[in-house]
Nucleic acid binder design. Structure first.
Lengths: 133, 133
DNA sequence: CACACTATTGTCAATTTGTCAATAGTCGTT
DNA sequence: AACGACTATTGACAAATTGACAATAGTGTG
């Protein structure tokens, strides 16, 4: 039994959706201006990405830096807590965001395609069950 | 360097999107009527899911069967090739599809949220660069 | 100094994915 | 009847990805 799946779609739920959305969301937030990881973490909620594990966000930021989408340096100004890293979007990051936006448009198109087909099916089923009586 | 990412968004591209779309797409296709894996594989292209590896589709079908979303049995009628498995959607599968549809609506909302913010930013940038002159 | 809060990093098992090969039946050709 | 082309499905594995939790570290409060 199990070994794969078994309630996966309930427990994990939106993991893959998150992955697909979080990085463009971070880039978009950074396009608004430089920011700390912690701030970004909080702002993600605005895109419906609440309850993301901090590790996941920080890891994403570091990965994006490795890929050259963002740059970072330690913040000079001190504030309550340890030194904070400031992230900035790079020109490459701008490009990636533009590309990614297109990708999201494409994804949206696919979803619309599915939803339309589903609603169409439901309507048909209603008509059919009406005829049966 | 690398170890993670490094061109990931180019090479793999839409893997996570695929995962998020393929299973509901399969369920939807099966709601239309029983079908063979091979047929479904071809029909997925209609939802923009061309170039999905056959293994991936067959594996998804088997997983869905394990979870009870679909049932399968060998086809009686012979056709050019080895015996084929016929998949049928189960009542549970109907429910899952309904739930998943809601999930897709939610995903779409998040994407819209992002795209709106992005377009808004682009418009603003245009205005700004216009003022500069 | 103990504690709560802000911030960031490191690690690891478990899951998921893509890929490639293996199996297997049918049909047409040589 | 051996061969290759096409239809179908399955198996197995390395690599990538994820979530969860612990570790580190500075600052302010009582």
């Amino acid at each position: 039994m199990h070994g794969r799946g078994q309630g996966r779609w309930r427990r994990q739920g939106c993991s893959r959706r998150t992955a697909r959305i979080m990085e463009p969301a971070l880039l978009l937030l950074l396009q608004h201006g430089p920011a700390h990881g912690y701030t970004l973490l909080e702002q993600l909620g605005g895109f419906g990405l609440d309850e993301v594990n901090p590790s996941v966000v920080y890891r994403a930021l570091r990965d994006m830096e490795e890929r050259g989408w963002v740059t970072s340096c330690w913040d000079d100004e001190e504030s309550q807590g340890p030194p904070r890293r400031v992230y900035r979007i790079s020109p490459l990051g701008d490009e990636v965001l533009a590309w990614w936006t297109q990708d999201l448009v494409e994804t949206k198109r696919m979803i619309d395609c599915l939803l339309t087909a589903y609603e169409c099916r439901m309507r048909q089923d209603n008509i059919d069950s009406h005829k049966e009586r």
